[in-house]
């Protein structure tokens, strides 16, 4: 068992800036938890507090049932993978991985066995004697991972580990991290600003904004039932269409069962369909302003007649409506989301 429990964790910097405003989270043993949010939302600070690299201003952080607020990073039995890899530039790959074990007085034979094992898993065996400078970005990333896994810690912490890699390598490493974590079954906390990375990696996805948790849950849960306007706009690409509906309605938009009062209507681009003769619970008309064809699908951008709200429609396959044409699209009630514009919370 090595779960991580955060309870009302807060971080206040010396200047009085509150970076994390009371976060409570439970990360179960073996779970892959991803913290996602825009820059400055407090996700990295939260991770660094778990690591012990930042002091905790309030609340408690417990690893494996033990409160670690006052415990040094080295004593927390965690390993961290940094964004810039943070490899020791003057040490060979082998020594980079062995360093943590040597500091803990692990017997030489065991160090050797563990480093070789990690090198085998991460396919860095040919580079063991090289210095980090002589490695590519992806190889450095593997070494950084190797340094984490040789120690067999209770918790892995990842601080945007893939953001320095190019797009192709990022996807490849993403899959590998997932496989590795599945194989080792080590509790992991992973920070990223990339919602796609977050969706694909997480068992538990935590969306943070302005120092608070907006919503935590399984990735698809967040996709299907975003609890707040922020989550609705953050999860999913292209983002959900959010239309502010005044009580009197909007011209060019018909809605079967509209909640009373002013609401924000949310509808995902992939849930809109071109309305021929089909009947729909929601139908809206917009003017096509831009078309992006990416092959497998086409994104159609337009402006709503009434208040000019931008609408994105995602069409499977190739479609090429002429710019300026008016499109009539619809959606079924099951795919509609309603939010309170004041509190930005989900309605019903």
């Amino acid at each position: 068992m090595s779960d991580v429990r955060l309870s009302e964790v807060r971080k206040v910097y010396a200047g009085g800036v509150e970076a994390v405003k009371g976060v409570s989270l439970t990360i179960a043993d073996g779970e892959f938890c991803v913290l996602v949010g825009p820059s400055g939302c407090g996700k990295s600070t939260l991770l660094r507090m778990v690591a012990g690299l930042e002091t905790i201003s309030g609340g408690t952080c417990a690893i494996d049932g033990r409160v670690v607020n006052e415990i040094e990073p080295a004593e927390r039995d965690i390993a961290m993978v940094f964004q810039n890899y943070a490899l020791y530039p003057h040490m060979s790959v082998y020594n980079n991985m062995a360093y943590g074990l040597r500091n803990r007085g692990t017997p030489k034979d065991e160090i050797d066995a563990r480093v070789k094992e990690a090198a085998r898993i991460l396919e860095v065996e040919p580079f063991l004697e090289r210095k980090p400078k002589a490695l590519s970005g992806g190889q450095r990333q593997r070494v950084a991972m190797g340094r984490a896994i040789v120690r067999k810690p209770k918790v892995f912490l990842f601080d945007e580990p893939l953001s320095n890699l190019d797009a192709k390598l990022r996807i490849q490493m993403r899959v590998e991290i997932k496989k590795l974590q599945r194989a080792l079954k080590t509790t992991s906390i992973y920070v990223t600003h990339d919602q796609l990375e977050a969706m694909t990696l997480a068992d538990q996805l935590v969306v943070m904004n302005k120092g608070r948790v907006e919503q935590a849950g399984r990735p698809l849960e967040l996709y299907e039932r975003p609890a707040t306007l922020f989550v609705a706009g953050f999860i999913g690409a292209p983002p959900m269409n959010l239309i502010t509906l005044p009580p009197e309605g909007l011209p060019g938009l018909q809605l079967a069962n509209k909640p009373t009062g002013k609401v924000v209507l949310g509808i995902r681009p992939e849930h809109l369909f071109e309305q021929g003769s089909k009947s729909a619970d929601l139908s809206l008309e917009f003017t096509v302003q831009a078309v992006e064809a990416v092959g497998a699908e086409t994104y159609i951008y337009g402006a709503l007649g009434g208040n000019g709200t931008e609408i994105i429609l995602r069409e499977p396959g190739k479609a090429s409506p002429a710019l300026g044409t008016r499109l009539k699209v619809g959606a079924s009630a099951a795919n509609l989301h309603f939010f309170d514009p004041e509190t930005s919370q989900r309605l019903a």
């Binding site: 080295a74 390993a79 020791y88 360093y99 943590g100 803990r104």
Partner: peptide
């Protein structure tokens, strides 16, 4: 981060 990594490395 290199110093921090060393701190975590015990």
């Amino acid at each position: 981060s290199v110093i921090e990594a060393a701190a975590i490395d015990g």
